[in-house]
């Protein structure tokens, strides 16, 4: 009984169906654990946590400079900025907007720096549905390659105060 003390010498190796199941489960667990390193080397989607320490002020200044030099248009009063293919792009999360809007070329790779100047935010690209955490003080660098053309929205999926659900942004891929 599981509520009474077991017999004095209860240790015995598993047997029968129980033993088979443990073997099967262990094999499945090994498959699970091999999948991650496998994808790390062979897969195209990885979150490696590439990041650098940065002050919010320094990051905001760099974003401003990026907007000034690379702005190509404006939508809804938000500057649309086009980084050079293969280069660095900057995105600032703040209460409550993603700044600026980005214009990227399909199948080009960018180093997308994301950080926050106030609270924690959640970068959530829709309807592609890719999600990354954004922290103040951390320059989170995603080496990203858009593989499909289209207009994508960024929503915030980390609670950041009362206007959280209004925090949106845009990425256009051409």
């Amino acid at each position: 009984m599981s509520i009474h003390a077991p017999e004095a010498n209860w240790f015995k190796p598993p047997s029968g169906a129980e033993r088979t199941w443990i073997g099967l489960a262990l094999a499945w667990c090994l498959v699970l654990s091999i999948m991650m390193p496998y994808w790390h080397f062979k897969g195209k989607q990885n979150s490696t946590g590439d990041s650098y320490r940065v002050t919010p002020a320094a990051f905001a200044a760099r974003v401003e400079q990026f907007v000034k030099t690379n702005k190509v248009a404006e939508i809804n009063g938000v500057p649309v900025v086009e980084p050079s293919p293969g280069g660095d792009a900057y995105l600032q999360g703040q209460m409550w907007r993603w700044y600026p809007a980005l214009k990227l070329r399909v199948n080009q790779t960018y180093r997308l720096h994301i950080s926050s100047t106030d609270l924690q935010h959640g970068f959530s690209l829709q309807p592609m549905n890719m999600n990354f955490q954004v922290l103040p003080g951390y320059d989170h660098v995603l080496t990203i390659t858009p593989t499909m053309k289209g207009e994508y929205s960024i929503v915030c999926n980390e609670f950041c105060g009362i206007g959280h659900h209004l925090m949106t942004g845009k990425i256009i891929v051409e």
Partner: peptide, 22 residues
């Protein structure tokens, strides 16, 4: 799985700069 965020009051994004919608 459709991307709907957790802890989010309005997935219609009424009044937001860009309205993604689901």
């Amino acid at each position: 799985s459709y991307g709907v965020p957790r802890r989010h009051w309005d997935i219609e994004f009424t009044g937001a700069q860009f309205a993604p919608g689901f």
